[in-house]
């Protein structure tokens, strides 16, 4: 099963390498990692999506918790939370098929953020599955490149992850 973990860490050099090193050495199955600043200047928040059964999940959490720079880990899988990812997709769009691509973009409520004679860049925010679906449809037109941020997640309701 897939689990989404919010990992709050000290904003210090080397923390990300430490975490990714630990994950790869212990051969945990990580699907994505996304890191960024938070409401507190000295805290970084890393969202990790891990494929694990209950026992593996406990190991991931316990091993990560041992790192001195890891302040708190909250599991956002079980609770009610919002999951999002951002993707930028560069797709072939000639004069003939451009309007078809635009239709697809509309259906997915995506955005066109760059256009030139042969290509378009589409921006989409949403759950992973939605992004996967858009990529699938756009394949027919020829995808040149894709960049995805990896998932970020936030719990609903007033309680922040650091207090969960």
């Amino acid at each position: 099963m897939k689990h989404t973990l919010a990992v709050l860490v000290e904003n210090r050099p080397g923390v990300l390498t430490h975490i990714s090193g630990l994950i790869s050495r212990r051969a945990f199955n990580i699907e994505s990692i996304a890191a960024g600043y938070t409401e507190e200047p000295d805290t970084t928040r890393i969202t990790i999506v891990v494929e694990a059964d209950e026992i593996e999940l406990e190991q991931v959490v316990n091993q990560l918790s041992k790192l001195v720079d890891v302040i708190k880990i909250s599991n956002l899988t079980a609770g009610d939370s919002i999951h999002r990812e951002l993707a930028l997709i560069k797709v072939k769009a000639s004069a003939e098929n451009r309007s078809n691509v635009v239709d697809i973009v509309d259906i997915f409520r995506a955005k066109i953020v760059d256009v030139n004679r042969e290509t378009m860049v589409i921006e989409l925010t949403g759950e992973e599955t939605k992004i996967d679906a858009l990529c699938e449809v756009l394949k027919d037109y020829g995808i040149i490149e894709i960049v995805r941020t990896g998932k970020i997640a936030l719990s609903r309701g007033p309680v922040p992850a650091k207090e969960l």
């Binding site: 026992i55 190991q59 316990n62």
Partner: peptide, 11 residues
């Protein structure tokens, strides 16, 4: 003392 030792090798 180390929670990560629990269930690491032997359940």
């Amino acid at each position: 003392i180390d929670p990560a030792e629990i269930n690491k090798n032997v359940l």
